[in-house]
Computed example of a mutant assay.
Amino acid sequence: MKLNDNTLELMEEITQIIGVSGNEKYISRVLQKHYKKYTDEIIFDNLGSVFAVKRCGKENAKKVIICGHMDEVGFVVNGITDTGLIRVLPLGSIQNQTVLAQRVRLINHEGKEFKGSIIVPNPQADEDKLIKASEILVDIGGTSKEEIAELGIKFGDSIVIDGQFEVLTKGKRILSKAWNNRYGCIMGIELLEALKDIELDVDLYIGSTVQNKVGLRGAQTSTNLIKPDLGIVMECLQANDIKSGDDTVGKLGEGILINYYDKSMMPNRTLLQHLIHICKTNHIKHQYFYSMGDSDAGWIHKLLVGCPTLTTCICARNINTNSSIIDVDDYIAAKEAIINVVKSLNTESINKFKAENR
Rank of each mutant, 00 (worst) to 15 (best):
A194F: 05
R182T: 07
R182A: 04
A194S: 14
S208E: 03
K196C: 01
D201Q: 14
L195D: 10
I189D: 03
I206C: 04
I206L: 06
G188N: 12
E193P: 03
T209P: 08
N180V: 01
N181T: 07
I186G: 00
E199M: 09
L195T: 08
R182H: 05
E199A: 11
L192F: 06
E190W: 06
A178G: 07
I198M: 01
G207D: 07
C185T: 12
L195S: 07
R182V: 03
M187C: 06
G207R: 13
D201S: 14
N181Y: 08
G184M: 13
E193R: 15
E190A: 09
N180S: 14
C185G: 10
L195K: 12
L204E: 03
L191Q: 08
L192K: 11
M187E: 05
Y183R: 12
G207T: 12
E190N: 15
A194K: 15
E190F: 06
L200E: 03
A178M: 09
I189N: 03
W179A: 01
L200V: 01
C185S: 15
D201F: 02
G207E: 09
I198Q: 12
R182N: 04
N180R: 11
K196D: 04
T209A: 06
N181R: 13
A178Q: 10
A194C: 09
V202E: 04
W179I: 02
T209L: 10
N180F: 02
W179Q: 07
I206S: 05
A178D: 08
T209F: 08
I189V: 13
S208V: 00
E190M: 14
E190P: 08
E190G: 09
L195G: 05
I206P: 02
C185W: 07
I198E: 14
I206K: 10
W179Y: 05
G188Y: 11
W179P: 08
K196G: 00
T209M: 09
K196H: 11
N180A: 14
A178K: 14
I189E: 01
N180K: 10
A194G: 03
L192A: 00
A178R: 13
D197T: 14
W179S: 03
G188K: 13
Y205N: 00
E193G: 05
C185E: 11
V202C: 09
D201R: 09
N180M: 04
C185P: 03
G184H: 14
S208I: 00
D197F: 04
I206N: 04
L200I: 01
A178L: 09
I206T: 04
T209N: 09
N181E: 04
G188F: 07
E193V: 04
Y183G: 00
G188M: 07
N180Y: 06
C185K: 14
L191P: 05
E199W: 10
